[in-house]
Nucleic acid binder design. Structure first.
Lengths: 222, 222, 222, 222
DNA sequence: GATGAATGAGGATTCATTCAT
DNA sequence: TATGAATGAATCCTCATTCAT
């Protein structure tokens, strides 16, 4: 908003800059997908974008920044796609359906944006999540945690965080397998991933159902 | 005459070499753990081992070969630790216990050999498991599949393979989280990992329990 | 708007590059001459050119490409020097004079461009002309063949090719000796080389003289 | 001779050493032929010989020495094959026949000992005959000069040397072409090589014949 | 802003040669 | 002697990044 109050000229420049940035991010996404993040070179990204390396560095201070920005945009796109406020679904929705819907949406998003996997795909070093994936990771976790918090209202924050971490990890593991296969086999893996999550979460939400099977809990989908 | 003593002669020569190889593999393990496999450089490994780059190349043709040999040795050590024949546990053992035992053992092994994670840690590009991790991956899968085959005797080979893939993926995901935490939190993640696997497998093995709750099935642990 | 000035913009940028390329080729020529092609290293060429290795690789993908480009430029310079169309000389010119003129020109060219010899200088392994010398070789052969075809109109293509190969070989052999000596001795070798070629070709062109000593034949010089 | 007066033990050792040397030289010849002299590595030679690099260096101080010794042995074998004293042929033998015979013998020798070409094949740097080829070169020149001296008794030593250099150069050039072809084409090149030499030398010996066609000159063959 | 040239340290790998055993 | 391990400088080449224009 603050920036939109500037004069026409700067806006023009910004417009061109935005286009360049989009162009570069698209190229980066493509390169990250084909070669993986680590092996991707900034020169390759610039080449893919049809600009000179110098131009790339006019918009991004380094490779990491590209990944971070890419992750940011993906998160925004996700929000645009899935709804800003994590629209709550009918609380009566069975867990099975909620998970299935969430997984299907996530998978679809990943297929639309294959770079998502490359960025999400964990740290090279166990326990050290690289800065470039950090924001993406954190945002995803927050989303999942938000979702879970309505499913597991009695969980302690620590338990909630842990469950969210688990869900994300399980999802990443499943996604890797899903993307590694095609056709019927891919579908089968999608189903297995759903099963894993459902069965993992079922006992946790079971209490809720046991305690309150009138469905008053607020179940939201991503 | 001198040449006819072909039994001891080569041994002596190889002794130093064997030591160097061990030293190099140890150094490689260390470097893989700190920098990750992809970012690890042969020069860094040689430096860590305190030898010149040339020495490394006397024993390994390239980085891949180091990873492969390291993986091989790890698999052998695993076999030595867990038993050659995947010693079957008391068939009456409930799934819960069997999984818990297997996970505990795996986790312990991973903590003893942190490089295991670095090597196991998946492909940079989905669907493209690099050759260097391939053998390790395949062996692990085979072990898991073997284990599952006694739990799920009615599964088709394809289902079995898929389930094995899922279990390995889930385990890797859990391991990442386990290694990323310490103390009580780590223990909590271990428990969650067990829960995931148990709940995922429970419905699949349900038939066995239904058919034969006297415990005649052959449940084996890794 | 800025981007529509596509005519001058790229030129300016390339100007520095063109200069660098020339500089690198000059350096390469120098290194090839002092150490020979095989032993020449790209780093040495870059050092000789006063640039970093990376700069060299911005313009040439490898040593071969440098040799090829160098050969190309030499061939063009040759064409510029000797004339595009192999200007035919007075057909009455005796073979002796024609050969002498051609040899003198070639030798002069080689003395002006000593790298020519290094590039022309044959295969390390008989029968395997490396790709980098191939084009140069082929072009030279074509030139010689063209020249000979007017001298030996009755030869079969195979014979013509063979004779051209022989002439080039003989010339290279003579050139090596010429370049290996100086002053009067060098001149003497030049004369011997002429003698060799003249005497080798004389019987082959004898027909022409027999048939037409009025000089109607089209004798061309390189 | 001096060495043969030593005791039995040393002789034994020498015998084994000689075998090793022969083995190494054979391996070197093979490697030189396949990769060329420059690209040949001592390690490769040792490997080909089935010995360790250390062993190689027990007999030869460096790669050059191997080439030199190989050249020496080839010269000796040449002498053994062609006769120690350059047996003079009937002086009445026409030049044509003498040259043809010499070329045929040389070619045959080269085909029997393909490494000869690799060693003989000139200097990488014009005018700088590398030491390793030097002896071979000098010996060949001496042989040719000796042969020519009876053909051209009136030539000054300088002319003789020059002619010898020319002949050797022409032969090498021709040999390259001969070895680069097979079958009928190879034979054709052999004939062309003979033609070149005959026609080059004919005028030089012509005087002799003109002056003295009784054939009193001593024509020798290699 | 944009270009593309320039950098130079760092990557994998090789090789002639030496050395302990 | 013979071995094979060890060396380390040199090879080619790449890449994130900077800079003059």
């Amino acid at each position: 908003m603050a920036e939109s109050q500037e004069k026409e000229q700067p806006r023009r420049r910004q417009a061109r800059g935005e286009r360049r940035i989009a162009q570069l991010l698209e190229a980066a996404a493509s390169v990250f997908c084909t070669t993986g993040y680590t092996a991707a070179s900034t020169n390759a990204i610039a080449r893919e974008a049809g600009v000179s390396p110098g131009t790339l560095y006019q918009f991004f201070p380094n490779k990491e920044a590209i990944a971070i920005e890419l992750g940011d945009r993906l998160m925004h796109e996700m929000r645009d796609t899935f709804g800003e406020a994590l629209a709550p679904v009918d609380p009566a929705t069975p867990l099975e359906e909620a998970v299935a819907a969430a997984v299907d949406r996530f998978i679809a998003f990943n297929c639309d944006h294959p770079v998502f996997f490359a960025l999400m795909h964990g740290p090279d070093i166990p326990g050290h999540i690289a800065e470039e994936h950090d924001a993406l990771h954190a945002t995803l976790l927050a989303r999942i945690e938000g979702l879970l918090s309505s499913l597991l209202p009695d969980s302690s924050p620590a338990d909630l965080a842990r469950t969210a971490h688990m869900c994300l990890g399980l999802y990443k593991a499943g996604l890797e397998l899903v993307l590694g296969h095609e056709g019927a086999e891919r579908d089968a893996y999608v189903q297995e991933l759903k099963n894993v999550l459902i069965r993992y979460l079922e006992p946790l939400v079971g209490d809720r159902l046991g305690r309150d099977d009138s469905g008053a809990g607020a179940v939201t989908a991503l």
